[in-house]
Amino acid sequence: MTEISGSDPLVRLEGVNKHFGPLHVLKDIGLSVARGEVVVVIGPSGSGKSTLCRVLNRLETIDSGSIVFDGRELPAEGRALARLRSEVGMVFQSFNLFAHKTILENVTLGPTRVRKIPRQQAEQRGMELLERVGIASQAAKYPAQLSGGQQQRTAIARALAMDPKMILFDEPTSALDPEMVQEVLDVMVGLAKDGMTMMVVTHEMGFARRAANRIVFMADGQIVEEGSPSEFFTKPSTERARDFLSKILTH
């Protein structure tokens, strides 16, 4: 695993609160992610994991608290927010590939339109990235023609094309057929090994053990426990985490 540079975290959340109507989904969240660190967020459904992921690039706004990314407070709107988002990759549960664009166009849209990189150069880089996630041969197809696993790997390539400082994964394998989960996880393990800063919301405990530097366990909108994978999986310190692990690890 890569060494993690200590002093200056890439992301720092302090006292973050978020409500959906009467529902308090994030309760006073404090969390830092160091550069190069892989943080895996687990917890029962409805615990606020996905929302935590989504507030980091402001797909959800927060009610109070502060989020500092790369030394600067998260911008509220406009071009500054667009710039921040271009530096934070996002991979969604439902892939969300642009349905009217080919696989290669999905990967080059951001670089050409946001970064203003010449088309030819963007396409060359795009093909390299598609090669890296193993779907270069599908470049001219449309998303609907690909399997779920191939679509999700395209989505990862699309995020990588922006050279992000961090990638957020919001349950990236939850919508996949079981036989396609591994191909996506393999790509993610590769990224983690290459030193990408990642926050991964997932139910894949194998991935959490293998690739995470730190596990964050959430329940009822709070961070209940955090620690290294070996600590967390062998001797969790809270009753809530023990209960959760006993439910998912028995089979």
């Binding site: 667009a82 271009s86 990759g89 969300n96 642009f98 339109r113 989505a155």
Partner: peptide, 29 residues
Amino acid sequence: PLGQAEAARAIGLTFLQTLRLVILPQAVR
């Protein structure tokens, strides 16, 4: 689908770019 706009915003497209490059081409079709 809402996810199309979210993905567009997530790669740093502005509101107008999202509309022009991702939403309207699909909507008009």
